[in-house]
Simulated assay, not measured.
Amino acid sequence: MRCAAGAASLILAGCAAAPHAPPAGEAAPPLYHGVQTRLLDGDLVNFLVEMEGAGSAADVAAYAECAAAQYTLIRGYGFARHLRTNVDEEGGIWRGDAVYTISPALPQGAKTLDAEVVVATCAENEIPTV
């Protein structure tokens, strides 16, 4: 399609390339709506995340983990330990409520994360951080 240079903006809007829809059978990419961070007590931090297009609760938990890892680095620490994540979906909007402890040294427990490694993985997977 060719558009005249002097055409009105409404006509020019029709000249822009149409956004590409995902191929049949593929889901649209998720939309990340932001993170709220609440310092609960010293090293205890609450992350509230919201997104659309999550495939499952695991996608929401991964978004919260990415936020926790970046926040850990911002605070000058290197490690975090996952305590809990609650996930809820209503009308296509997914919300996660996660709590982590952050620390300068590797904490005890099974659900620990190295913040630098997690942030790098989040970037590779195009999951935003704080």
Rank of each mutant, 00 (worst) to 15 (best):
L44A: 14
T85K: 07
Y77S: 14
N125W: 10
E90S: 15
Q70W: 06
A7I: 00
D43H: 13
Y100S: 00
A27G: 04
G76P: 12
R2E: 14
E116G: 08
A54V: 03
G6K: 06
M1G: 15
A57L: 01
A18W: 03
A57N: 06
V60W: 02
A58P: 01
G42N: 07
P22S: 02
C122A: 15
L12H: 13
V130R: 10
N86H: 11
V117T: 11
G34P: 03
L40Q: 08
A123L: 14
N125S: 11
A13C: 11
G55A: 14
G109D: 06
P22E: 12
L106G: 01
A18S: 14
A57W: 04
Y32K: 07
A120S: 15
H82F: 14
S56L: 00
I93Y: 02
A16N: 04
E89F: 05
A64Q: 13
L106D: 15
K111R: 12
C3D: 02
H20D: 08
A69P: 05
P23Q: 12
V49C: 07
T112V: 15
A110P: 03
D41A: 15
Q36E: 15
G78V: 00
Y100D: 11
Y63V: 01
G34A: 02
M1Q: 13
R38P: 11
A24G: 08
G53S: 05
L31M: 07
N46L: 15
E50L: 01
A7K: 10
M51N: 11
I93M: 13
A62C: 05
G109Q: 10
L44V: 07
R2L: 06
R84S: 13
T85W: 03
W94M: 02
Y77D: 15
D59F: 11
P29W: 05
A80E: 00
R84W: 04
Y100Q: 00
A27H: 08
Q108Y: 03
G34S: 09
G25M: 09
N86W: 05
V118M: 07
G53D: 07
A21G: 01
P29I: 08
R81Q: 15
A67Y: 05
P29H: 00
R81N: 09
Y100G: 03
G92C: 05
A13Y: 00
F47R: 04
E26T: 13
D97R: 03
H20V: 12
L39C: 11
T129V: 12
A21D: 09
M1S: 04
A69I: 04
A110H: 03
I93C: 03
N125C: 09
L12R: 14
L31V: 15
L10K: 08
R2P: 04
I102D: 11
C3L: 06
H20R: 14
V118N: 07
A62N: 09
A16C: 12
Q70Y: 03
G91S: 12
